[in-house]
């Protein structure tokens, strides 16, 4: 780790101000950033901790029936407090990492980092969530741009994520045996007006929607509707743990299982 200054703002406005400093970087739960710093792979001059910003914490329902989760809310909190409102998402949060990760890691941190194997991007994209920042609101479809790439500008903070609550949803995850991140995971959400299917862990472009499956499931929400669908292996990640073909195959299996779990 290199030396850095740390700022601990208590309001979003102060955090945004602090992030205008040269080489400043926001620190949320630190589950990715701290190991990166320890390995000396990042050299921020100032870390702006979002940990003390109360207005970025908590889980509630808004007037439009959306589940709103503050950007600095931990997975453990979502696991508990979202259960009554959006069990499919609470279950996703409950299966991220291990208890230590869930007690520190936050939804804002996960979505801002957009690791191609992270769980939350699938939940957000699969739900058609709205990503709220200190300056604007971004639809999930416009937010996730690629592996570790998002629509966030320099110094922009994810303050809240608003989830439309589907009729039902299920997150089916097949873990990479070493990291226990998803090797492939699929989030399927059934809304009154259609089905969304988001896939994480699989693509070189990060989280994506499997539109063929969405179309099939929107007209017939059953495992059979997707049993003959094959995801394309083009642009899938190929590494020590799974070839592109294997990942493409798992997309089908996980989708089918997610739907079966809701039937």
């Amino acid at each position: 780790m290199y030396n850095f200054d740390i700022a601990k703002p208590t309001t979003i406005a102060d955090a945004v101000q602090a992030l205008t400093a040269d080489e400043a970087q926001p620190l949320s739960g630190g589950q990715t950033l701290i190991p990166t710093l320890k390995a000396r792979l990042a050299m921020p001059s100032t870390l702006v901790s979002l940990h003390a910003i109360d207005e970025m914490k908590g889980v509630c329902m808004d007037d439009e029936g959306r589940l709103c989760i503050g950007g600095a809310t931990t997975h453990a909190t979502v696991m508990k407090e979202a259960e009554a409102h959006y069990p499919g998402l609470a279950s996703l949060a409950a299966r991220i990492g291990d208890p230590a990760v869930r007690n520190r890691g936050t939804i804002g941190g996960s979505i801002a980092n957009n690791d191609p194997s992270a769980c939350y991007p699938a939940g957000a994209l699969g739900s058609g969530a709205t990503i709220c920042t200190n300056s604007r609101e971004i639809a999930a479809d416009d937010y996730f741009l690629g592996m570790f790439e998002t629509a966030l500008e320099e110094g922009e903070i994810v303050t809240e994520v608003k989830f439309p609550v589907p009729e039902k949803a299920h997150y089916e995850k097949f873990i990479q045996p070493a990291s226990r991140f998803p090797l492939v995971a699929v989030f399927v959400a059934k809304f009154a007006d259609g089905v969304r299917v988001a896939v994480t862990g699989a693509s070189n472009n990060g989280v994506f929607r499997w539109t063929e499956a969405e179309t099939a499931l929107s007209s017939n929400f059953s495992a059979d509707a997707v049993s003959n669908l094959k995801a394309s292996a083009d642009d899938m990640i190929s590494d020590l743990h799974g070839s592109a073909e294997y990942r493409a195959h798992l997309i089908g299996v996980m989708t089918k299982r997610a739907v079966a779990a809701m039937s």
Binding site: P177, A178, S179, F181, L240, H241
Partner: peptide, 17 residues
């Protein structure tokens, strides 16, 4: 596992199960 340039591919618990 090593790649053909001798870099260890499973050099942390992220890849060594």
């Amino acid at each position: 596992a090593y790649d053909d340039e001798g870099q260890l591919l499973s050099a942390s618990y992220m890849d060594y199960a």
